[in-house]
Simulated scan of single mutants.
Amino acid sequence: MDRKALIAHCLAYEGALEDEPFATVNATVMRHEGNGKWFALICELDGVLCVNLKCEPMLALFLRTTYPGVRPAWHMNKLHWNTVEVDAVPQEELFGMIRHSFDLTAPKRKKRAG
């Protein structure tokens, strides 16, 4: 999968926005429209297309032991974020990790009074 296809996949989520906040780094941030939180940071590390994704800590550890291309996140909280080499995990698994990150960072729904 290339960078353009990865961005397109992330933009398919309702309320997802693309942002490039870093002038000196070739990185694309995918964020929620509702709260501005990041759910993916797409970049190249040592020439390899990667994406940083938020993850529940126990699942993050499991994924790191299951896939050599998943490691503690570059430049982010190592407990809650993984760096995933895009072509080092099955596409279905990658899409599941993106969905998980999207869901974890989504705006909280307001409770109805009553």
Rank of each mutant, 00 (worst) to 15 (best):
H9Q: 03
H9N: 00
H9I: 00
H9A: 01
C10S: 03
L11T: 02
A12W: 05
Y13D: 06
Y13N: 10
Y13W: 13
E14Y: 02
E14A: 13
E14F: 04
G15I: 10
G15W: 11
L17C: 07
L17I: 07
E18N: 03
D19E: 15
E20F: 01
E20K: 14
P21W: 08
P21L: 11
P21G: 13
A23M: 08
V25K: 07
V25Q: 04
A27C: 12
A27S: 12
A27N: 09
T28E: 11
T28A: 11
T28N: 12
V29G: 11
V29L: 15
M30P: 07
H32R: 05
G34P: 01
G34L: 04
G36L: 05
K37A: 13
W38H: 03
F39T: 11
A40G: 15
A40C: 10
L41W: 08
I42A: 02
I42R: 04
C43I: 08
C43F: 14
L45V: 12
V48Q: 12
C50R: 13
C50E: 09
N52F: 04
L53K: 12
K54G: 08
K54P: 10
K54Q: 10
C55F: 11
E56W: 05
E56R: 03
P57G: 11
P57M: 07
M58D: 13
M58R: 08
M58A: 10
L59C: 02
L59H: 12
L61V: 07
F62Q: 15
F62E: 15
T65C: 05
P68Y: 03
P68S: 12
P68L: 07
G69M: 12
G69R: 10
G69Y: 08
V70N: 12
V70R: 12
V70C: 14
R71E: 06
R71G: 02
P72N: 00
A73H: 09
W74C: 01
W74F: 15
M76K: 09
N77R: 06
N77V: 02
K78H: 04
K78I: 02
K78E: 06
K78D: 05
W81V: 00
W81K: 01
T83N: 06
T83A: 09
D87R: 14
A88L: 15
V89D: 03
V89R: 09
V89C: 02
P90E: 15
Q91S: 05
E92A: 14
E93Y: 00
